[in-house]
Design a protein around this nucleic acid. Sequence first.
DNA 1: CGATTCCCATACCTGTGCGTACTTTAACGC
DNA 2: GCGTTAAAGTACGCACAGGTATGGGAATCG
Lengths: 207, 207
Amino acid sequence: METATAKAVRARTKRVKETPLTEADWVDAATGILVEENVRGIKVEKLCAKLGVTKGSFYWHFKKRSDVLIALLKAWRRRTTLNVIQNIAKSGAQGMGRLRSMIEMPRHAKAGEVAAIEMSIRDWARRVEMPKEAIVEVDTIRIEYFEQIFRDAGFDEAEVKRRSYLTYCVLMGDSILHRTLGGYVERRDYVDAAVAILSQPRGDVGS
Amino acid sequence: METATAKAVRARTKRVKETPLTEADWVDAATGILVEENVRGIKVEKLCAKLGVTKGSFYWHFKKRSDVLIALLKAWRRRTTLNVIQNIAKSGAQGMGRLRSMIEMPRHAKAGEVAAIEMSIRDWARRVEMPKEAIVEVDTIRIEYFEQIFRDAGFDEAEVKRRSYLTYCVLMGDSILHRTLGGYVERRDYVDAAVAILSQPRGDVGS
DNA sequence: CGATTCCCATACCTGTGCGTACTTTAACGC
DNA sequence: GCGTTAAAGTACGCACAGGTATGGGAATCG
């Protein structure tokens, strides 16, 4: 039979980090599970196993399970809203180049993980109010950015709104569909076409 | 204290239907929970409560919990693949009118429930293989229909694929975003713009 | 060097949910 | 009428998960 001290040692050796855990560690672990499973898969004991500690630690950092969910959401909200703004500046794109770099985003290398997190949160938001607020905020910020792009390109206000919404639909749709329909269209091909079609001046409607 | 017979009577009176339950009844109940919560929310006892019976009934109809999930998926797959084909015939639309009626779909009255089911299954499919197969099949059928539309309109094969994928992205994006960004654009306005832009012949790309 | 505080371990209680074994009731054939 | 079978009801075992209470070791501060 395993002694209590032996178990303690075994638990300790599982720890990756020897410094005390921070809230960020818990949030990261929870985010991982959120993607692999879903919100309901975020169990206290599973979090602890992932971090190599026991429940005593969790309930020292948080009062209850839902507190880590709130922290997760807060962190995502902050990261994501900042990302939108930063990607504007970072890419250095101008005019319709901004549209292109936005449309390319879901197909970027590291985007898969990011998109998976967002999709999990969107799914969560379908039934719970708290994540819905975060989603609405992110959606609003993004669409305002699209509006700016089309406004700069000289479209009138009504057309700006329509194209912004359409653009966001394309973006959102692609980030969902390129997983199952991955190889259907080439990335370069798709991005070119999307930019061209969305930025094309309104001509006559084909009969 | 409540007697055993009294409990039996109380349970019986909760039953909506007095005829024996069918597999379809269980699948319907499970689908309801799938939308309200998610796939992990489909608990055997919750299903039973919804149908006014006890676990004895469930385990007479199914061997284990996952069997009802399989049945649910099978039913959805069948319904959805049929729906795509039927909506083609039913609408009676021709040419680009077919595109319009497809784009209108997520905004139809009863579409909310249907879309919610699909989104729940898509979320489920992100982590499990079984629902993923169903999703891939549905995606393939839909995009083949889009291809037909654009092919009939005279686009070349490469453009057919690009536009089909873009169209599906718009459809998918709208069915997700119109919940949070519901009032952002008017339905009529959005549909007109989407059809116009997606069907517009390729002109010069604005600089 | 002693006490306090931080961070975590252990043990326990409770509720819930899956699955099983057995019993009960109602309809139906004969 | 009477046994048989379909369609449940009842009771139980058990594993997991949330939360609490308490204990322990290491660092830190006076």
